[in-house]
Design a binder for these strands. Structure first.
Lengths: 118, 118
DNA sequence: TTGATATTTCAACGATTATCAAAATATGGA
DNA sequence: TCCATATTTTGATAATCGTTGAAATATCAA
């Protein structure tokens, strides 16, 4: 991940609707959701959502795949990994105790959710 | 971390100069740097940098402390932790194998970079 | 083909943003 | 006090952004 790629990704995420879209698709997993369902779930007009989906895809955070009449959008987890890594690169000049736990919150509800569905 | 706080933080990071400032201060660690030195290191005019530092601080990503004539700015690592956690919250509905590696080894990115280019 | 569904593109508007020069504020030292 | 240093604030300008309705494109089914 290079600086301008990271800036693009962050700019894409720095808007409430797009942030909600991305987090929804992160939660949804690699299968993704059709654009229309994202619009319905978030209460956004199709034209507006299309604009935001395009921005997120252009920023490399989403991938899309047409399936019949619908277009499925899914989060690009590799890109997410790259972005987080870029932000924390060379964190604290090799003093890991300062950064430890920086990412401990990721998927913090995994355990609870696993219990619920068990 | 709530949605509008996260949006603010991402908006603050979504600008090349501010992203460079933040990453510089992440590398620098909790001691931080005086505004003037940040400006010199990044080749940004003091007035412009002051504007960006204020935005980053208002977004909760930096903390500042006056020390004699200088004002020291440092990354707020707790905020960073919160932001990353928010982005990855409920990642993949409890299927951790999808998100695995998303956050592993912050600050030890030489290995990850090797993976990326592989 | 015709019609219905799903999504995108277009055009236009108001709002926000980054940048710089110049002036203002705050601190420390002579 | 007066002066130099460090940083911020102000005012102005040009560029970008988010939203919407309307029109366009793509797909499927009858």
């Amino acid at each position: 991940m290079q600086e301008d790629r990271a800036t693009q990704a962050l700019a894409a995420l720095s808007q409430p609707t797009r942030l909600a879209v991305f987090r929804l698709l992160v939660r949804e997993g690699p299968a993704g959701l059709p654009a229309g369902e994202v619009a319905r779930k978030l209460g956004v007009q199709p034209a507006t959502l299309s604009f935001h989906l395009a921005q997120l895809e252009r920023a490399g955070l989403l991938v899309s795949k047409r399936q019949s009449r619908q277009i499925l959008y899914a989060a690009d987890f590799a890109a997410m990994r790259g972005l987080v890594g870029f932000l924390l690169d060379d964190c604290c000049h090799g003093r890991p105790e300062i950064c430890d736990g920086l990412t401990a919150g990721a998927g913090k509800n995994k355990a609870r959710r696993a219990e619920e569905t068990a």
